[in-house]
Protein backbone atom coordinates (compact mmCIF):
# COMPACT_ATOMS: atom_id res chain seq x y z
CA UNK A 1 0.00 0.00 0.00
CA UNK A 2 1.06 3.56 -0.73
CA UNK A 3 2.66 5.43 2.16
CA UNK A 4 -0.11 7.06 4.13
CA UNK A 5 0.27 10.80 3.69
CA UNK A 6 -2.53 11.45 6.16
CA UNK A 7 -1.00 9.66 9.13
CA UNK A 8 -0.10 12.08 11.91
CA UNK A 9 2.92 11.52 14.16
CA UNK A 10 3.10 12.19 17.89
CA UNK A 11 5.33 15.02 19.18
CA UNK A 12 6.02 15.94 22.79
CA UNK A 13 4.96 19.35 23.99
CA UNK A 14 8.04 20.99 25.54
CA UNK A 15 6.43 24.22 26.65
CA UNK A 16 3.24 26.27 26.48
CA UNK A 17 3.41 30.08 26.60
CA UNK A 18 0.28 32.13 27.22
CA UNK A 19 0.66 35.02 24.79
CA UNK A 20 -2.77 36.46 25.53
CA UNK A 21 -5.91 35.16 27.14
CA UNK A 22 -6.89 33.61 23.80
CA UNK A 23 -3.55 32.79 22.22
CA UNK A 24 -1.04 30.22 23.43
CA UNK A 25 2.25 29.25 21.85
CA UNK A 26 2.93 25.50 21.85
CA UNK A 27 6.56 24.49 21.62
CA UNK A 28 6.94 20.91 20.40
CA UNK A 29 10.03 18.74 20.21
CA UNK A 30 10.49 18.16 16.48
CA UNK A 31 13.64 17.89 14.44
CA UNK A 32 11.88 18.60 11.18
CA UNK A 33 13.21 20.84 8.43
CA UNK A 34 10.70 23.65 8.05
CA UNK A 35 10.83 26.85 6.00
CA UNK A 36 9.45 30.19 7.17
CA UNK A 37 5.77 30.47 6.25
CA UNK A 38 4.93 26.77 6.10
CA UNK A 39 2.18 25.11 8.14
CA UNK A 40 1.28 21.78 9.76
CA UNK A 41 -1.99 19.87 10.11
CA UNK A 42 -2.33 19.63 13.86
CA UNK A 43 -4.67 16.99 15.19
CA UNK A 44 -6.17 15.91 18.44
CA UNK A 45 -7.95 12.65 19.06
CA UNK A 46 -11.72 13.15 19.27
CA UNK A 47 -11.74 16.50 17.46
CA UNK A 48 -10.02 16.59 14.09
CA UNK A 49 -7.36 18.47 12.19
CA UNK A 50 -6.65 22.11 11.43
CA UNK A 51 -3.93 23.91 9.50
CA UNK A 52 -1.66 25.90 11.83
CA UNK A 53 1.28 27.98 10.62
CA UNK A 54 4.68 27.64 12.21
CA UNK A 55 5.50 30.65 14.38
CA UNK A 56 8.95 29.58 15.54
CA UNK A 57 11.64 27.26 14.20
CA UNK A 58 14.50 25.88 16.26
CA UNK A 59 17.11 23.20 15.67
CA UNK A 60 15.00 20.53 17.38
CA UNK A 61 11.75 22.28 18.10
CA UNK A 62 8.89 24.09 16.44
CA UNK A 63 6.41 26.63 17.76
CA UNK A 64 2.77 27.05 16.87
CA UNK A 65 0.82 30.03 18.10
CA UNK A 66 -2.83 29.18 18.19
CA UNK A 67 -5.91 31.25 18.81
CA UNK A 68 -8.66 29.74 20.90
CA UNK A 69 -11.33 29.64 18.19
CA UNK A 70 -13.12 26.67 16.69
CA UNK A 71 -13.33 23.18 18.11
CA UNK A 72 -9.83 22.03 17.26
CA UNK A 73 -7.93 24.93 18.71
CA UNK A 74 -10.14 25.08 21.77
CA UNK A 75 -9.32 21.49 22.67
CA UNK A 76 -5.62 22.23 22.31
CA UNK A 77 -5.81 24.60 25.22
CA UNK A 78 -6.38 21.86 27.77
CA UNK A 79 -3.06 20.17 26.93
CA UNK A 80 -0.11 20.45 29.27
CA UNK A 81 3.65 20.32 29.01
CA UNK A 82 4.73 16.72 28.38
CA UNK A 83 1.51 15.79 26.58
CA UNK A 84 1.60 14.51 23.03
CA UNK A 85 0.44 16.45 20.03
CA UNK A 86 -0.27 14.58 16.80
CA UNK A 87 0.60 16.41 13.62
CA UNK A 88 1.74 16.04 10.03
CA UNK A 89 3.65 18.43 7.81
CA UNK A 90 5.20 20.75 6.95
CA UNK A 91 2.96 21.81 4.08
CA UNK A 92 2.85 24.62 1.59
CA UNK A 93 5.47 26.95 0.21
CA UNK A 94 7.39 29.56 2.18
CA UNK A 95 8.62 33.13 2.04
CA UNK A 96 11.23 33.57 -0.71
CA UNK A 97 14.32 34.25 1.40
CA UNK A 98 16.59 34.07 -1.64
CA UNK A 99 14.58 36.82 -3.28
CA UNK A 100 14.81 38.92 -0.08
CA UNK A 101 18.63 38.52 0.15
CA UNK A 102 20.59 41.76 -0.02
CA UNK A 103 17.48 43.92 -0.32
CA UNK A 104 15.35 45.99 2.00
CA UNK A 105 12.40 44.13 3.51
CA UNK A 106 9.11 45.50 4.78
CA UNK A 107 6.89 43.23 6.91
CA UNK A 108 3.32 44.33 7.61
CA UNK A 109 1.34 42.08 9.91
CA UNK A 110 -2.05 42.35 11.58
CA UNK A 111 -3.32 40.41 14.60
CA UNK A 112 -2.74 36.67 14.39
CA UNK A 113 -1.00 37.39 11.07
CA UNK A 114 2.09 38.12 13.19
CA UNK A 115 2.45 34.37 13.89
CA UNK A 116 3.34 33.25 10.34
CA UNK A 117 6.02 35.99 10.06
CA UNK A 118 7.47 35.60 13.55
CA UNK A 119 9.96 32.91 12.58
CA UNK A 120 10.98 34.98 9.56
CA UNK A 121 11.57 38.00 11.78
CA UNK A 122 13.51 35.91 14.30
CA UNK A 123 15.67 34.61 11.47
CA UNK A 124 16.57 38.14 10.36
CA UNK A 125 17.02 39.17 13.97
CA UNK A 126 19.88 36.66 14.05
CA UNK A 127 21.02 37.22 10.46
CA UNK A 128 20.39 40.88 9.74
CA UNK A 129 23.39 40.81 7.42
CA UNK A 130 21.35 38.81 4.91
CA UNK A 131 19.25 41.85 4.07
CA UNK A 132 19.86 45.62 3.82
CA UNK A 133 17.16 46.69 6.26
CA UNK A 134 13.95 45.52 7.82
CA UNK A 135 10.90 47.68 8.43
CA UNK A 136 8.20 46.01 10.51
CA UNK A 137 4.66 47.28 11.06
CA UNK A 138 2.59 45.22 13.49
CA UNK A 139 -0.97 46.06 14.35
CA UNK A 140 -3.26 44.65 17.04
CA UNK A 141 -6.84 45.35 17.96
CA UNK A 142 -6.16 46.40 21.54
CA UNK A 143 -3.64 45.95 24.34
CA UNK A 144 -5.17 42.63 25.30
CA UNK A 145 -4.46 41.10 21.91
CA UNK A 146 -0.76 41.96 21.64
CA UNK A 147 1.23 38.87 20.71
CA UNK A 148 4.91 38.10 21.37
CA UNK A 149 5.41 41.21 23.53
CA UNK A 150 9.01 40.23 24.41
CA UNK A 151 9.88 39.51 20.80
CA UNK A 152 8.40 42.83 19.73
CA UNK A 153 10.71 44.62 22.16
CA UNK A 154 13.71 42.76 20.74
CA UNK A 155 12.63 43.46 17.18
CA UNK A 156 12.20 47.17 17.90
CA UNK A 157 15.83 47.32 18.96
CA UNK A 158 17.13 45.87 15.74
CA UNK A 159 14.48 46.68 13.08
CA UNK A 160 12.67 49.84 12.09
CA UNK A 161 9.50 48.95 13.92
CA UNK A 162 6.10 50.59 14.11
CA UNK A 163 3.60 48.99 16.49
CA UNK A 164 0.03 50.13 16.52
CA UNK A 165 -3.28 49.43 18.21
CA UNK A 166 -6.56 50.07 16.38
CA UNK A 167 -8.04 52.62 18.75
CA UNK A 168 -5.59 53.50 21.49
CA UNK A 169 -1.98 54.46 22.03
CA UNK A 170 0.13 53.01 24.88
CA UNK A 171 3.86 53.14 25.46
CA UNK A 172 5.53 51.47 22.48
CA UNK A 173 2.31 51.47 20.46
CA UNK A 174 0.83 54.16 18.28
CA UNK A 175 -2.83 54.36 17.41
CA UNK A 176 -4.52 53.53 14.12
CA UNK A 177 -4.77 50.71 11.61
CA UNK A 178 -1.59 49.34 10.01
CA UNK A 179 -2.65 50.85 6.68
CA UNK A 180 -2.37 54.32 8.20
CA UNK A 181 1.32 53.78 8.94
CA UNK A 182 2.41 52.37 5.57
CA UNK A 183 3.16 55.82 4.17
CA UNK A 184 5.88 56.18 6.81
CA UNK A 185 7.95 53.49 5.10
CA UNK A 186 10.67 55.17 3.00
CA UNK A 187 9.96 53.13 -0.14
CA UNK A 188 11.55 55.84 -2.34
CA UNK A 189 14.81 55.48 -0.47
CA UNK A 190 15.13 51.71 -1.13
CA UNK A 191 17.27 50.54 -4.00
CA UNK A 192 15.46 47.22 -4.20
CA UNK A 193 12.97 45.79 -1.74
CA UNK A 194 10.10 43.40 -0.93
CA UNK A 195 6.95 43.77 1.14
CA UNK A 196 5.37 40.93 3.13
CA UNK A 197 1.75 41.39 4.20
CA UNK A 198 0.01 38.90 6.50
CA UNK A 199 -3.27 39.28 8.35
CA UNK A 200 -7.01 38.99 7.98
CA UNK A 201 -8.26 39.08 4.34
CA UNK A 202 -9.62 42.63 4.53
CA UNK A 203 -6.45 43.95 6.19
CA UNK A 204 -4.27 42.32 3.51
CA UNK A 205 -6.33 43.81 0.69
CA UNK A 206 -6.25 47.35 2.05
CA UNK A 207 -2.60 47.14 3.08
CA UNK A 208 -1.70 46.06 -0.47
CA UNK A 209 -3.73 48.88 -2.00
CA UNK A 210 -2.03 51.34 0.33
CA UNK A 211 1.38 50.00 -0.75
CA UNK A 212 0.43 50.40 -4.41
CA UNK A 213 -0.63 53.96 -3.63
CA UNK A 214 2.83 54.56 -2.17
CA UNK A 215 4.47 53.44 -5.38
CA UNK A 216 5.17 49.81 -4.55
CA UNK A 217 4.90 47.59 -7.63
CA UNK A 218 2.79 44.42 -7.38
CA UNK A 219 5.79 42.13 -8.00
CA UNK A 220 7.39 43.28 -4.73
CA UNK A 221 4.40 42.32 -2.53
CA UNK A 222 4.03 38.89 -0.89
CA UNK A 223 1.04 37.64 1.07
CA UNK A 224 0.20 34.57 3.10
CA UNK A 225 -3.34 33.21 2.73
CA UNK A 226 -5.38 31.41 5.35
CA UNK A 227 -8.09 29.02 4.23
CA UNK A 228 -10.26 26.21 5.58
CA UNK A 229 -8.48 22.92 4.84
CA UNK A 230 -9.22 19.29 5.61
CA UNK A 231 -6.24 17.60 3.98
CA UNK A 232 -3.43 20.10 3.14
CA UNK A 233 -2.37 17.87 0.24
CA UNK A 234 -4.65 18.99 -2.58
CA UNK A 235 -7.48 16.49 -2.24
CA UNK A 236 -10.25 17.83 -0.04
CA UNK A 237 -11.09 20.86 -2.17
CA UNK A 238 -11.81 23.33 0.63
CA UNK A 239 -8.93 25.74 -0.07
CA UNK A 240 -9.34 25.91 -3.84
CA UNK A 241 -9.63 29.39 -5.37
CA UNK A 242 -10.11 29.34 -9.15
CA UNK A 243 -7.64 26.70 -10.36
CA UNK A 244 -5.30 27.30 -7.42
CA UNK A 245 -5.01 25.19 -4.27
CA UNK A 246 -3.77 27.31 -1.38
CA UNK A 247 -2.30 24.24 0.35
CA UNK A 248 -0.21 23.36 -2.69
CA UNK A 249 0.69 26.64 -4.42
CA UNK A 250 0.42 28.74 -1.26
CA UNK A 251 -0.01 29.83 1.38
CA UNK A 252 2.51 32.47 0.24
CA UNK A 253 1.60 34.23 -2.99
CA UNK A 254 3.16 37.09 -4.87
CA UNK A 255 0.56 39.83 -5.25
CA UNK A 256 0.55 39.44 -9.05
CA UNK A 257 -0.94 35.99 -8.39
CA UNK A 258 -2.86 36.84 -5.22
CA UNK A 259 -4.88 39.56 -6.95
CA UNK A 260 -6.03 36.98 -9.48
CA UNK A 261 -7.39 34.66 -6.82
CA UNK A 262 -11.04 35.59 -7.11
CA UNK A 263 -13.13 34.34 -4.24
Amino acid sequence: MTANIFKPDPYRIADIVHETELEYTFKVEAGVKVDHGQFFQISLPEIGEAPISVSGIGRDWLEFTIRKVGKVTHRLFSLRRGDRLFMRGPYGNSFPLDEFRGKDLVVIAGGTGVSPVRSLLKHYFDHLDEIRSLHFIAGFKDRGSILFADDLKDFAARFHAIYTLDKEAIPGFQSGLVTEHIRKIPFAGFADYNVVIVGPPVMMRYAALECLKNGVSKERIWMSFERNMSCAVGKCGHCKINETYVCLEGPVFNYTKAEQLLD
Binding site: S43, P45, E46, G48, S230, C231, K235, C236, G237
Partner: peptide, 26 residues
Amino acid sequence: SCFTTSDVAYSENGRSGDRRRVWASC
Protein backbone atom coordinates in the same frame (compact mmCIF):
# COMPACT_ATOMS: atom_id res chain seq x y z
CA SER B 1 -14.64 14.93 -4.94
CA CYS B 2 -14.62 17.30 -1.96
CA PHE B 3 -14.63 15.96 1.58
CA THR B 4 -14.20 17.00 5.20
CA THR B 5 -12.21 15.09 7.80
CA SER B 6 -13.31 14.87 11.41
CA ASP B 7 -12.80 12.70 14.46
CA VAL B 8 -15.50 10.73 16.22
CA ALA B 9 -15.03 9.31 19.69
CA TYR B 10 -16.26 5.84 20.59
CA SER B 11 -15.62 5.95 24.28
CA GLU B 12 -17.00 8.07 27.07
CA ASN B 13 -13.61 9.65 27.76
CA GLY B 14 -13.14 10.43 24.07
CA ARG B 15 -9.69 8.88 23.96
CA SER B 16 -10.40 6.39 21.19
CA GLY B 17 -12.38 6.62 18.03
CA ASP B 18 -12.33 7.05 14.26
CA ARG B 19 -10.90 9.74 12.09
CA ARG B 20 -13.15 9.75 9.10
CA ARG B 21 -13.76 11.39 5.78
CA VAL B 22 -17.26 12.51 4.79
CA TRP B 23 -18.35 14.12 1.51
CA ALA B 24 -18.44 17.90 1.55
CA SER B 25 -20.10 20.33 -0.83
CA CYS B 26 -18.94 23.71 -2.12
